[in-house]
Amino acid sequence: MSVAPVEAISIGASAGAVQALLRILPALPADYPIPLFIVVHVPPDRSNALVSLFAAKCQIAVREAEDKEPILPSTVYFAPSDYHLLVEADRSLSLSMDEPVNHSRPAIDVLLESAADAYGPALAAIVLTGANHDGAAGLKAVCAAGGTAIVQDFADAQVATMPEAALTACPSARVMTLDDLIPYLLTLAAT
């Protein structure tokens, strides 16, 4: 367990993302204090659908991240489709049109590396189900910055490739099922 209290949570998910996130996010109360930044691989033009889908099912506020907006507590920020989402050291969000990373824009690595830089040991990062290797380099950066790294249990993941790659890159990461993850996230808020 990391010593510093967790001030932000970053999640990356790809194939099987929606089902996995539908287990986790609706379990968070409206006043869950920690902001969450989420990258889901979706084809261009789909991200508004994600936001409205989750907003309808969650108590916590769900928004599409806007460029240069200050990070608020009790809010889930989804990366817009076709933009990378980055976290700035001054605790604001920024977007970029830089080239795809791991063939993805948004890319999980871009989010996790910038969030690791901004939050250091106060970041918890989670790599969920997916069929590619995005998030592995990002999770490694999270570990290097002293943050808490978590990957989804392979048997629990709809597609295990992504959490497997992330664990290989960051062997100290904790392995959790979605059922473990929900109480864990609630505990983070209590500390």
Partner: peptide, 9 residues
């Protein structure tokens, strides 16, 4: 420039 992007580049 927004620092997170410039740092990546």
């Amino acid at each position: 420039y927004a620092r997170a992007s410039i740092k990546r580049r």
